[in-house]
Amino acid sequence: MSGLAKQKKAGLLSIGFVLTQFSFSPVFAEQRPFNLGSIATAEQVAGWDIDVRPDGLGAPIGAGNAIDGEAVYTDRCASCHGDFGEAVDNWPALVGGEGTLASHDPVKTTGSYWPYASTMYDYIYRAMPFGEAQSLTYNETYQIVAYLLNMNDIIDDDYELNNKNIGKIEMPNHAGFLIPDPRPDAQSISGDPCMNDCNVPTQIIGKARDIDVTPENES
C-alpha cells in the first residue's frame, strides 16, 4: 500500500514536470504524459480480450452440454487426457481425485482441485488443444467444459452450460484455497540464529545418488 501512495505522489510530480516542458501540446488537455501508443478500437480489444473471470465476465455467447461434448472431447482431447480424463503418459488427469488432497499422493484434477469452472473455459479456449491454441469454437469449448464437469459429477449430462451460468457453477474444492499468503512462516528463530553447538539433525537419512533419477551429463 505504501508503494501505491509513493507512486501516486511521484506520478503527480512527473506530470507537472512534463506539462512545463511540453505545454504547447494540446494532448495534455487529457493529461497523457507521453502521447505514445494509439487508441485501441473496440474490434481490436474484442479480438484479444479472451479471458473469462470467475463471475462469468468475458464469457462469449455460446452453449453446450456433456452429451454433445463427448464427441468433441474424444476428437480433440482424449489422445493426451484419456477417454475418461484419466490421462495418458505424463499429461494431466482431468477427472477424479476426490478426497485425495490431504493424502500422501494428491490427485489434482478439474474436479478435485480447480475452484472455478470459468478457469476451465478460459484455459481450454486460450491454450487447448496443446499446439492448436484458440482453434475451438465457443460452443465446442462450452461442450468440452460441460463434458468434464459431468465426468466429475458436478452437472448432469443434459445441463446446458452457457455464458450466463458459467460463473455460477459450484466447484467441489471452491473453499479449498487460503488467502492471504501467511508467509513468512516456518520461522522458529527470532533474532540472531544459532552459530555454535546448534542442536540440529545430523544423521544422513537419504542420498540423491541412491535414488538414481539424475540425468547423466555427457560432455
Binding site: 473471470r53 488432497l101 489434482k108 480447480w114 475452484p115 484455459y123 479449498g176 484455497f177 487460503l178 488467502i179
Partner: peptide, 21 residues
C-alpha cells in the same frame, strides 16, 4: 481473474488438503 496458472498451478497444497493461493 483466477487463471489456470494461479488456481490449478502455482497454488501450494498444505498437509490438511487446503492450498495457499
Amino acid at each position: 481473474y483466477m487463471a489456470r496458472e494461479e488456481t490449478s498451478k502455482y497454488t501450494d497444497l498444505m498437509k490438511d488438503g487446503n492450498a495457499r493461493m
